[in-house]
């Protein structure tokens, strides 16, 4: 087992995961806001923010799909050691992690059922950067409107059309994160 497999987790799990969860919860509860999240030093290509989110939310009860380049020995070993989350494919994952290009197609993921819409995957999308500019967001969690640099528009519009079913997204970049729940209405920049 490599040294960097064992390191890079939370040194004080209870407190660090409480802070990390606060960031994820704020991001998902207030779509379009960008939150700092820290405490994890995962192996590349996993970002620090994505690592912290995984440490906070995943364990042996949550199958995780590693997409594209994220499906490498270093990430697998790190995730297994720190969370015990079983690796799986997109169809029965609770969390997926990868770049936007690697994660597709979105039709592969569970979107919940009409009686249990919560049984849907959360996709953690690694982004080169995150800014509060781009697509216009409205809906729960947003006072009037917000803006976020989304990798595209239509995928999120189709996802919202499934509401109350659908996927939820966390966008990560470095030590920052934003989120887009299925409840958010996405329109083109300046459309609102």
């Amino acid at each position: 087992m490599q040294a960097d497999t064992l390191s890079g987790g939370f040194s004080d799990p209870a407190r660090q995961s409480a802070h990390a969860f606060r960031s994820v919860r704020e991001a998902l509860g207030r779509p379009g806001t960008i939150q700092d999240i820290s405490g994890a030093r995962p192996p590349a290509p996993l970002s620090s923010a994505a690592g912290a989110a995984l440490l906070t939310l995943c364990d042996t009860e949550t199958p995780v799909y590693l997409a594209g380049n994220h499906d490498c020995d270093a990430v697998r070993a790190w995730l297994a050691f720190h969370t015990g989350a079983p690796p799986t494919g997109p169809t029965d994952c609770m969390f997926a992690i990868g770049t936007w290009a690697a994660l597709g197609p979105l039709s592969a993921y569970p979107i919940g059922t009409s009686e249990y819409p919560d049984r849907a995957a959360t996709l953690i999308v690694e982004c080169p950067s995150l800014t509060t500019a781009g697509a216009t967001l409205t809906g729960p969690g947003i006072q009037t409107s917000a803006a976020l640099s989304l990798p595209e528009l239509t995928a999120f519009q189709s996802n919202h059309a499934l509401f109350p079913l659908g996927l939820d997204f966390i966008f990560t970049s470095g030590t920052r994160l934003a989120a887009l729940p299925r409840s958010t209405v996405v329109t083109q920049e300046g459309a609102f």
């Binding site: 209870a14 969860f21 994820v24 919860r25 998902l28 906070t56 939310l57 995943c58 919560d118 409840s183």
Partner: peptide
């Protein structure tokens, strides 16, 4: 443990909270 609950239980509750926020 901090705030009484074990970390696994907190993770389970936190996941439920996030789904709750996503489906108001």
């Amino acid at each position: 443990n901090f705030a009484y609950l074990d970390e696994q239980t907190k993770r389970m509750i936190r996941r439920a909270i996030l789904k709750g926020l996503a489906i108001p």
